[in-house]
Design a protein around this nucleic acid. Sequence first.
DNA 1: CTGCAGGCCGGCG
DNA 2: CGCCGGCCTGCA
Length: 288
Amino acid sequence: MKYQELVIKKINAFELKDIFDCGQCFRWNEELDGSYTGVVKCGVLNVNCDSKNIYFKGNLDCDIKAFVDKYFDLDRDYEAIKNKLSKIDEYMENSIKYGKGIRILNQDLWETIISYIISANNNIPRIKGIIERLSKKYGTKVSFENEDYYLFPTPEQLKDVTTAEYRSLGLGFRDIRLYETTETINNNNHLLDNLYDMKTLDVRDELLKLSGVGPKVADCILLFSDLKRFDIFPIDVWVRRVMNDLYIKNPDEKKVSNKVINKVAFDKFGDDAGLAQQYLFYWRRTLN
DNA sequence: CTGCAGGCCGGCG
DNA sequence: CGCCGGCCTGCA
């Protein structure tokens, strides 16, 4: 681990609150100075912004520049996508205005799989708590600015953990899912590596074979991990709600199938459906 | 005390 | 296939 810093010029689609509070990640927290600190695969990172620059500093065992480029999806032209989506209708235009600083993070695949298995039928504060306890108990300690942080445990570090131990950390009925998926991944060394070069729908099929991974969790993994499948449109209760309210308008929301929602999303948003989902979700959820 | 939160799983028709 | 009940846990 090595202390590193990086400053880059401010870009338009980059607001800390939008990025870290739009619901895609669980390990970033706001500091008193308005910056955010997060634990990532290769260490601890802190990010701050002003009108001119974005400031990164961290204790990392990887190159900060290369990591930031990838993690924050800096190669993608969000302005172009926002302009395109804004023209679809005034709903998209408004939701984009609201979440103008959102970027889709490229998070570690293994961590994203386990985190979203934990997210099933759960709420965000509890999800974050479980992940913290899991990391503190089994992950590697990293110090940064006189504080201790814990990396997300590797598959190897979870190899011998029992369902009872998971239960004691508050996993509830997800204990067996975590146990089984960890076992599956530990028994197939290249299972995750092989996903990167596969076609999206084939990756989805593979993810669905994992214990605790259903359609919604699979889609979140595809979009929010470094698999970076940008056209995937995860449907949770909020997305269902906003899509029905705006476009489908079925008086009985429960009767709308995910298939219908997906088709509407694909027809309207095409390859940018994933980002469109984030704008709509963030907008609908925070404004309730 | 019930309801519910970013679903999944298994059994059934 | 699609539908439905049950499910750990913590907080309102």
